[in-house]
Simulated scan of single mutants.
Amino acid sequence: GCDVNTALGLAVPFALIGQWINTGTNTFYAGFLPKVDKCAAAGDEKGIAKVMYTGWILYAAMFALAAFLSTYALQSGISAFVAAFPAWLVHGFEVAGGLMPAVGLALLLVVMLKKENAAYLLAGFVIMVITNCQNILPIAVIAGCIAYVNFTRDTETAKLTAASAATAAQEGDFEDGI
């Protein structure tokens, strides 16, 4: 019953619950490793598979339980909990939710932005602004095509460079043409 930015901001604390489940399950799963080591030392491949599948099933069951509880069994409790938040906190979640796309873009740029890719970023931004496009999917598909063409070209260039270097090494380096 709230706007998108508020919902996005509220999603973060609940996403932390998923991270806690992930950490707890991985910690629990670490208890299976001594059994895997014993099976590996004995050469028991079926035993390793059994332990691994058991761990994966327990891992999936923990997330299934959390999803079930949050979407079905505890829905009224969660709604009451969220409704009890003071207005200033809900407004804070709304502001945080509005900032999330900018923070996400900034994090992506920190990892991915290289000076040779800056022109593509600028071109995509200009296309989105000029066309006033509400759907980024067509621009993403075009960008994917351009990335594929660049990757293919760079791969072919690397192969040619390697072949040229191998040919030069076979012919040998002769000083003064002798």
Rank of each mutant, 00 (worst) to 15 (best):
C145M: 14
A168H: 07
L137D: 09
G92A: 13
E175G: 11
A49L: 11
V129S: 03
T25V: 13
L33H: 01
Q75G: 03
M52D: 08
A166S: 12
A40D: 04
Y120M: 06
D173R: 00
F85V: 00
A147Q: 07
D37K: 07
G98S: 10
A61N: 05
T27M: 03
T161I: 06
G172Q: 01
G9V: 04
V141C: 05
Y29S: 14
Q19E: 06
D176C: 02
T152S: 14
G18Q: 07
N117A: 06
L10Y: 05
L10T: 08
G24Y: 04
P86S: 11
I178Y: 08
T25P: 01
F28W: 15
A61Q: 03
G43K: 09
S70E: 13
T25Q: 09
P34W: 07
N117E: 00
G47E: 11
I57T: 13
F81S: 13
P34N: 05
F68P: 01
K50D: 14
A60D: 12
V141T: 09
A40M: 10
A73F: 12
V12R: 07
N22S: 12
I146P: 09
T71F: 12
F63A: 10
A168N: 13
A30E: 06
G177M: 03
D154N: 11
G77L: 10
E171Q: 12
L65Q: 05
V110P: 06
Q75I: 11
L99K: 00
C2T: 13
I146C: 14
A83T: 11
D44I: 04
E171G: 13
L33M: 08
G97T: 06
G24Q: 03
I57A: 14
F125V: 08
A123S: 08
A96C: 09
V4Y: 14
M62I: 01
G172F: 03
T167Y: 04
V103T: 02
A15I: 12
V149C: 11
F81N: 02
I57D: 04
L108C: 12
T71V: 06
V82F: 07
F93P: 01
A118S: 05
T131K: 00
G18V: 05
E171L: 12
F85L: 09
N117T: 15
F125H: 00
A96M: 09
T167M: 06
A83F: 06
V103I: 15
L105Y: 07
T161K: 13
G9R: 03
V12A: 11
I48C: 10
A64R: 01
Q75F: 09
N22E: 09
L58M: 14
P34S: 04
L10N: 07
M112F: 15
A87Y: 05
V12I: 15
I48M: 13
N5D: 10
G55P: 04
E156R: 10
L113S: 02
E171W: 02
G1P: 08
L74F: 15
F93I: 00
A41M: 11
K50G: 03
A40S: 10
H91C: 00
L108I: 10
N132M: 10
A169R: 12
E156H: 05
G9K: 03
I130T: 10
V103N: 01
I17Q: 08
L113C: 07
R153M: 05
Y59D: 13
T167K: 10
A118N: 02
S79H: 09
A67Y: 13
M128L: 12
T23M: 07
C133K: 08
M112Q: 14
